[in-house]
Amino acid sequence: MAPTEAITLVVQPRGKPVKKLPPDTTAALTDSTAELYKRLAAATGLSVHRLRLAKGSDGSVIPNSSKIPISETGLRQRSNITVKDLGPQIAWRTVFLVEYAGPLLIHPLVYYLRDYIYPTPSLAPSALPEPTALQKLSLILVVLHFAKREFETLFVHRFSSATMPAFNIFKNSAHYWLLSGLNLAYFAYGPSKTEAAPWFTYLALALYTVGELGNFNAHLILKGLRPAHDPTARGIPRGFGFGWVTCPNYFFEVISWVAIWLVNAAISKTSAVSTAVFVIVAAAQMGAWAAKKERRYRKEFGAEYRRKKFVMLPGIF
């Protein structure tokens, strides 16, 4: 069959019926898979990001790529393809912005409204002790951390997937709005008289600075692997931290939060526990992502990739 020859593909829904889905479609073997997605999206009136195409023969997903011709997918004349409607989608960038906005708003609100949040029978709201230097420091560190994340979302991150299921924004946001937002803020800014020695503050600030700058540098390196015109491009990251672990951005993220935990642990025992819960949950999730990325690097780049023994924490995990 000549590579320019047009073929007819049998189209079937996968799962729930897809309105206006044609029974078949025609495409040239030289067409990209992205053109196939666009053709079926136009026919159904749905966004290309809502559709997932797969080969009927083995169920393998047909990628939505402008670089992969249909001839390389194994599809031939009268091949079956299935179309799944993934449901309403939302842009990944929007999801990140909404997630990080939670703690960015909640911490200042709790801090400045503490007179109304923590009154006790023996204390009028106006008699609540002033925030300690450690509480002020905790607020600054948390706000700077999430402000940096918002900045990176707008100007640094390049997303390989354009969208995600819209409903997931509630699940994803709960982690930040509740666990790192209300949970951390409520226990960090209550009545406290604890003050830390200067060396302790300097230690926390040093760790925080290393963590934030190391994390930002890792994100810049990852950005360099994906040119603006092709955010789906993949490459092997190299540079500071990437020789130690698979995902140094997660490693430095943990360092930043250990610094915040040190500050909150000095404020109160309850603040220490609430911060530790968030750090442990976040580290466990990042560890799972890092392990998955290591497996993907090994599969995708083979012998070209130098395998890492530790995926997130040097010498530990």
Rank of each mutant, 00 (worst) to 15 (best):
T4M: 08
E5F: 05
L9A: 07
V10Y: 03
K19L: 15
T25P: 05
A27V: 14
A28M: 13
A28C: 12
D31P: 00
S32A: 15
T44Y: 04
V61E: 14
S65I: 00
P69C: 11
I70E: 05
S71M: 00
Q77I: 01
S79H: 04
N80A: 12
N80E: 15
G87R: 09
R93A: 05
F96N: 11
P103A: 05
P108F: 12
L109Y: 01
V110I: 15
V110Q: 00
I117D: 07
I117S: 07
Y118W: 03
T120L: 13
T132G: 08
L134N: 13
L137T: 15
L139C: 15
I140M: 14
V143K: 05
F146C: 04
K148P: 06
F151P: 09
V156H: 12
R158M: 05
F159E: 04
S161V: 13
T163N: 14
P165Y: 06
A166Q: 11
F167P: 07
F167I: 07
N172V: 02
N183K: 02
L184T: 11
Y186W: 06
Y186D: 13
K193N: 11
K193E: 02
A196N: 14
A197F: 10
L205F: 09
A206R: 10
Y208F: 15
N217M: 08
H219P: 12
H219N: 13
R226D: 07
P231Q: 12
R234I: 01
R234W: 08
G235E: 06
I236V: 07
I236T: 06
R238P: 03
F240W: 10
W244R: 14
V245I: 10
Y250L: 02
F251E: 00
F252P: 07
V254L: 09
I255R: 10
W257L: 01
W257T: 09
V258I: 15
A265S: 15
A265E: 06
V273N: 00
S274A: 15
Q285C: 03
G287K: 00
G287F: 00
K292I: 05
Y297C: 03
F301C: 07
G302H: 09
A303E: 14
K308E: 01
G315C: 09
F317I: 01
